[in-house]
Amino acid sequence: MGQNLVARHLTAEQWKEIDEAIARVQALLAPVVVAVTPAEKRALVKMGDGSTAFCRQAADVMEENLELMPRSLDIAEMRRDLDMHDALNTRLVKLVKLVEQVRDTEIAIGSDAMVAALEGYAVLKAVGKGEGVQALRRQLGRRFEQAPREAAAPA
């Protein structure tokens, strides 16, 4: 084989463990994750990197001036939100890195399989002429057939 970017493979038992671990993470996060529609996302006030410091300072100032704050403003809940935001963000960074690595691996292993398939197909085309594989060659060759282009509309 001309290419082998991913040489190690997982067993069925390892895949089962991975699926169980993913399900466990989903179950642990289920009580706190929410679904937000695209329209809701657009309407939400976003907290970027610079906003984190602003929110912490605002919480400090509000706590120092409780007499000025409306009773409906729950500063303790705001602090819990900030703490959870930090905790989620820490995990999100790790998950995004993992997803990128998994995507890269999926691309690499797909490329390995495609290169091997193309090598085998080339061999079948070159030496498989009388070996009873003509129908199989044609079947594999359909992958490279292009759909006919539509004729240009008359002006």
Score class of each variant (00 low, 15 high):
residue 1 M to L: 11
residue 1 M to P: 10
residue 2 G to L: 03
residue 2 G to Y: 04
residue 5 L to T: 12
residue 7 A to V: 06
residue 9 H to A: 12
residue 9 H to G: 12
residue 11 T to M: 14
residue 13 E to N: 03
residue 15 W to Q: 13
residue 15 W to P: 00
residue 19 D to F: 01
residue 19 D to P: 02
residue 20 E to P: 00
residue 26 Q to R: 02
residue 27 A to N: 02
residue 30 A to K: 12
residue 31 P to Y: 01
residue 31 P to R: 07
residue 32 V to Y: 04
residue 34 V to K: 14
residue 36 V to K: 11
residue 39 A to M: 02
residue 40 E to R: 10
residue 42 R to N: 15
residue 43 A to N: 10
residue 45 V to Y: 04
residue 47 M to H: 00
residue 48 G to C: 10
residue 51 S to T: 12
residue 51 S to E: 14
residue 51 S to F: 09
residue 52 T to I: 13
residue 53 A to Y: 04
residue 54 F to V: 13
residue 56 R to V: 13
residue 59 A to G: 05
residue 60 D to T: 03
residue 61 V to H: 06
residue 63 E to A: 09
residue 65 N to H: 15
residue 66 L to M: 09
residue 68 L to F: 12
residue 69 M to R: 06
residue 69 M to A: 13
residue 72 S to E: 13
residue 75 I to C: 05
residue 75 I to P: 01
residue 76 A to E: 09
residue 78 M to A: 13
residue 79 R to M: 01
residue 79 R to L: 01
residue 80 R to Y: 07
residue 82 L to C: 00
residue 88 L to D: 03
residue 89 N to V: 10
residue 89 N to C: 11
residue 90 T to Q: 14
residue 91 R to Q: 15
residue 91 R to H: 09
residue 92 L to H: 13
residue 94 K to E: 15
residue 95 L to I: 07
residue 96 V to C: 03
residue 98 L to G: 04
residue 99 V to A: 10
residue 101 Q to G: 07
residue 102 V to Q: 04
residue 102 V to N: 06
residue 103 R to S: 15
residue 104 D to I: 09
residue 106 E to I: 14
residue 106 E to R: 07
residue 107 I to F: 14
residue 107 I to G: 07
residue 110 G to Y: 04
residue 110 G to E: 12
residue 111 S to D: 15
residue 114 M to I: 07
residue 116 A to I: 00
residue 118 L to T: 09
residue 119 E to V: 02
residue 119 E to F: 04
residue 119 E to T: 00
residue 121 Y to M: 08
residue 123 V to K: 14
residue 125 K to P: 05
residue 125 K to N: 08
residue 126 A to H: 03
residue 128 G to M: 11
residue 130 G to E: 11
residue 135 A to F: 02
residue 136 L to A: 15
residue 137 R to H: 10
residue 137 R to S: 05
residue 142 R to E: 10
residue 142 R to S: 09
residue 143 R to G: 12
residue 144 F to R: 00
residue 147 A to E: 01
residue 148 P to A: 06
residue 154 P to N: 10
